[in-house]
Amino acid sequence: MMRRVRWPHLLVLLFVLLAVFAPQISPHDPATIHPTILAPPSSAHLFGTDALGRDLFSRVLYGGRQTLGVATVAAAVALAPGLLLGVLWGIAPRPLVPSLTALFSALLAVPGLLVALVLLAVIGRGMGQIALAVGLSQIAMVAQVTRGAVVNVRDAPYIESAHAIGATPRHIIRRYVLPNIWPVVVAYAGVTFSYSVLNGAALSFLGLGELGVPDWGVILAEGRAVFNAAPWVSIFPGLAITALVFAVNALVDRML
């Protein structure tokens, strides 16, 4: 068992711990204004300070809480209904399949980020709203992947045998379908989480989050305005997003 613990596991765990214990680890309050603006990284400010003189290390730590929180909620919002719809689509009676396929294809034809933007225009700005929008925009994708997995096992000989011995559809789904699609679902949950991190950060980068609430996307956007003078303001949150997504994807790879 120990052999399976590798760097992606550790890195993801590290991100989670840093996010959970941000208030204890962070050397400063993320909103406190310090006298030196755009100070380069030093022992006083590990990641330097931003354009308003706030400690960047503390902001990136607190930002992790936001970014991970938003991505977790978004992934949950995408996965729960996505799985259910995917399974139903996979076992739907044949006459219904073409219309369901057309409906999901139409939903999938619009890029997720665009759907999220439209949703935000309706439900308003805020981190909670971003999580909801990012989650909702990925439901069709989760459903499609789940349906693919269901279709793969649906016609397997062991399912036919189950039908032959008179098992009910409910029993078949619980006993035979779900356990066999589980690896795909778990792997895709990781992918959904990564997408949620990226799309959540992209939307808060665009200014659709809450002003004053640090989030990696927000810090990245703030850094862009001073990139010539202080590249570190963008580099650290950018690295954090990249490392997290990379670690989650590597973790998913190892699970497959």
């Binding site: 909103a31 204004i33 354009a51 308003l52 200014g207 809450e210 002003l211 004053g212």
Partner: peptide, 28 residues
């Protein structure tokens, strides 16, 4: 609103008011 450096101004104001015990809710 997003123009004229106002998001930065508002965040600084929020931090300054917090020091005396006034909470500002910034609505973009």
């Amino acid at each position: 609103p997003p123009w004229g450096g106002l998001p930065d101004v508002a965040q600084l104001m929020q931090a300054q008011w917090r020091e005396i015990g006034v909470n500002a809710r910034l609505v973009q």
